[in-house]
């Protein structure tokens, strides 16, 4: 189908986009268009005005810092995936971003658009949740930060006011030598995940887990961190029984079903995938530690 008629407006700066957003009625921001144009073509979404953020170069780019990195909203998913510095210090990002749609959709789709669209299966929301990211929003009265834990309000409804623009996201880095894994179960590669799992962990000198983060995507309105699973890992020496128990503890009550799969089916997948994901993350942490010893 074709989109209903609308007016198109090119924003050349963040300030200009902000002014348009406050002055135009029934307006929407256009980033990569990989969700919005599809919804408009299906006429799920009908707008009077589109404000194109693509020319706003100040919103694109990645900056690296010791303990975090900041990604501009208009950074293409493809550029993020290709960034070698991110892949070096936070390798889970490249592994996870490879699951975001297809190369054609990543060439246009942006980091900010994915967070703002808030599909329950969005890998970027999962990465944000894993790294306790902060999202920056710019509005008529200046900018504010929202912690990722507070960002999802309801199904596909983030904490973004009608006159606000998501400008950047700040992901926290994990220390060198951490273990990581991201995996999905989907009907075909690039489809939205039925269940996705991400995890990060670090080991102390004795090999016990001293920090862990585990997240599920595609199973609830927003990304689902699993604090109970994380807590049971802390201080433990990893082994198959521990990871099996952690998987069982991932059968979270908030996991929901949909038209295609039941909640129980998702819980079963979550249990198996969390076990496998932690096992692989642990192996990678051990490898990283051995490499470091080698260097010394």
């Amino acid at each position: 189908m074709k989109a209903a008629a609308f007016r198109y407006h090119r924003a050349d700066s963040l300030a200009e986009a902000g002014e348009m957003l406050t002055s135009l009625d029934n307006a929407r921001l256009l980033s990569g268009g990989q969700s919005l144009m599809a919804m408009m073509n299906l006429r799920y979404v009908i707008v009077d005005h589109l404000i194109d953020l693509n020319p706003v170069s100040e919103l694109a780019g990645i900056s690296h810092h010791d303990d975090h990195f900041q990604v501009g909203a208009m950074t293409r998913q493809r550029c993020f995936l290709d960034d070698d510095a991110v892949a070096a210090h936070s390798p889970i990002f490249r592994e996870a971003l490879g699951y975001v749609g297809h190369l054609q959709t990543r060439n246009r789709g942006t980091v900010g658009g994915s967070l703002a669209h808030m599909d329950p299966a969005a890998e970027l929301l999962g990465l944000a949740a894993l790294t306790d990211a902060d999202i920056t929003l710019s509005g008529p009265n200046g900018s504010r930060q929202v912690a990722i834990a507070e960002f999802p309000q309801a199904y596909m409804t983030p904490d973004i006011k009608v006159d606000e623009i998501l400008t950047a996201v700040r992901f926290n880095r994990w220390p060198a030598g951490h273990g990581w894994d991201f995996r999905e179960f989907a009907q075909r590669h690039g489809d939205f995940a039925v269940v996705g799992v991400g995890c990060l962990l670090t080991l102390d000198a004795a090999g016990a887990i001293d920090r862990a983060a585990v997240v599920l995507i595609g199973v609830a309105d927003g990304p689902l961190r699993l604090p109970a699973v994380e807590a049971m890992l802390l201080g433990m020496l990893p082994n198959a029984d521990l990871f099996r128990a952690a998987g069982e503890a991932a059968r979270h009550p908030e996991i929901t079903g949909d038209a295609l799969v039941t909640a129980d089916y998702r819980r079963q997948l979550a249990a198996v995938m969390v076990r496998r994901s932690l096992t692989n993350a642990h192996q990678r942490a051990v490898q990283a530690m051995n490499q470091e010893h080698h260097h010394v």
Binding site: M37, N41, N54, T105, N107, R108
Partner: peptide
């Protein structure tokens, strides 16, 4: 030079 979906991009872009 980049492959994109022409159904999801506007001509004016």
């Amino acid at each position: 030079g980049e492959a994109i979906r022409s159904c999801l991009m506007l001509a004016v872009q």
